[in-house]
Design a protein around this nucleic acid. Structure first.
Length: 426
RNA sequence: GGAAGGGUGGCCGAGUGGUUUAAGGCACCGGUCUUGAAAACCGGCAAUGGGUAACCAUUCAUGGGUUCGAAUCCCAUCCCUUCCGCCA
């Protein structure tokens, strides 16, 4: 959420941000009018309240000295009637204004290229694309041929966009989670967290999933709970309504969680394979930082995620998203795209974003530089480190052999009893 | 799910209708004292909104209600603790 005063003082900037994101600036319509209305109503009602408060004190002192206060009491009764008419009006205008405000996206950083996704900017490319003496297969062809990846049975249990993994692929999934967590908690200095997977509406609002993107998540019937679409939500909201010690910043946390997404609006996209699931595993990185450090911290967070790909020796590129392709809450986003030999394309495997104070204002995450100093909003960042399912996809496709077996990347072997290959069970 | 107790500022905690403009303590900041520090003493110290400002309003879990006036009384909801029940 943007600061109300910021929107009031810089309507042109907010307008530009909306247009740059390919949205209609109509989202701002009525803001100024509402703001003026709210302030004028507030002045009126606050004056009445002040009058009533003074009179009430007089009643108290009159009664104490045994004098008659009936006249004042009658007068005050009338004041209260007036106040009761205006108060709901104030509440209504405030609600309208905050609804409008909570639907306005973050202002994006100056370094973000303007335009739609065709303006995304390739920042760097890492690794060599593998050379094959044969036609490389897609991961689902490989997985199904190995007899270790099953979409048919998954559809019996749950439906489309779910998968069942067996044996060595299930183990590979576990190995990847442990490898990623060990890497980030070891060398990269993140604290490991095991958070809830069911999240209440307030927390979903805090990171920006609500109110605008309710249809992207699964809601639990009869409860004010949602299936977490990403560990960004529980990890960032760990610090909701807290005043942080400046000495503790930056705070770095990581968690493995299952993630659940409704994938509404992506009908027909990536219908085969593990790419776009209703349920997938992800190791998430979250940072809470000082405002002046956040953009630098985004660079190091992105490198932390890249390290996973480098250790797995998977070719990838880093893309700086354009203003039109970025998420609602983000001020700047790098996507990591891993190369997939099957379709022969780069696919998103991590998204690393700096949210400046946008989430912190919604979630009320603050800090104080010194005792007595004003409270300030912290900056929040997050990135996938990495999406586990898509990492498995990348390994299957990049490490495939002519016989359909998969070579296990060196760094994962300690997690798999030093096994070197995944082979067909038949 | 049942019963009981509770939710007050950064933290602890007093407070059952009118100097509560939220006592007191801790922590923190400034000062006195000291070679320096500690201790002691003095002073300061909530957030949000409105206002050029003086200042005003709101906030004691949340939402309603009673009243001239609510942290305090009433109703509903949420959360926490303890005990019981159920249970991986």
């Amino acid at each position: 959420m943007l600061d109300l005063k910021f929107v009031r003082d810089h309507p042109a900037l907010v307008r530009k941000a909306l247009i740059g994101r390919g949205q209609s600036p109509a989202a701002l319509d009525g803001f100024e009018e509402l703001d003026l209305k709210r302030r004028s109503l507030l002045r009126t009602v606050e004056e009445l309240k002040a009058e009533r408060n003074t009179a009430s004190e007089k009643v108290a002192s009159l009664k104490k000295s045994g004098q008659d206060a009936e006249e004042l009491i009658v007068q005050n009764r009338e004041l209260t009637q007036k106040i009761k008419l205006i108060d709901p009006e104030v509440a209504q205008v405030e609600e309208e204004q905050s609804r409008l405000l909570s639907n306005i996206p973050n202002i994006y950083d100056q370094s973000v290229p303007e335009g739609d996704e065709s303006h995304n900017k390739e920042i760097r490319v890492w690794g060599e694309k593998p050379e094959f003496s044969f036609e490389p297969k897609n991961h689902y062809e490989l997985g199904e041929a190995l007899g270790l990846m099953d979409f048919q049975r998954a559809s019996k249990i749950s439906g489309s966009r779910f998968a069942v993994l067996y044996g060595d692929l299930s183990r590979l999934n576990r190995a990847l989670i442990n490898f990623m967590l060990d890497l980030h908690t070891g060398g990269h200095g993140y604290g490991e967290v095991w958070p809830p997977a069911l999240i209440n509406s307030k927390a979903m609002f805090g990171t920006g999933q609500l109110p605008k993107f309710a249809e992207d998540s699964f809601k639990i019937e009869n409860y004010d709970l949602w299936l977490a679409p990403t560990a960004e939500v529980p990890l960032t909201n760990l610090f909701k309504d807290e005043i942080l010690e400046v000495a503790d910043l930056p705070i770095l946390v990581t968690a493995y969680t299952p993630c659940f997404r409704a994938e509404a609006g992506s009908a027909g996209k990536d219908t085969r394979g593990l790419i776009r699931m209703h349920q997938f595993d992800k190791v998430e990185l979250v940072k809470i930082t000082l405002p002046e450090d956040s953009m630098e911290e985004l660079e190091s967070l992105t490198l932390n995620a890249e390290t996973v790909l480098q250790k797995l020796n998977l070719p990838y590129r880093v893309v700086l998203l354009s203003s039109g392709d970025m998420g609602f809450s983000s001020a700047k986003t790098y996507d990591l795209e891993v190369f997939l030999p099957g379709p022969g394309v780069y696919r998103e495997i991590s998204s690393c974003s700096c949210f400046t104070d946008f989430q912190a204002r919604r979630a009320n995450i603050r800090f104080r530089r010194q005792k007595g100093a004003k409270l300030e909003f912290a900056h929040t960042l997050n990135g996938s480190g990495l999406a586990v399912g898509r990492t498995m996809v990348a390994i299957l496709e990049n490490y495939q052999n002519p016989d359909g077996s998969i070579t296990i990347p060196e760094v994962l072997r300690p997690y798999l009893g030093f096994q070197t290959h995944i082979r067909s069970q038949n």
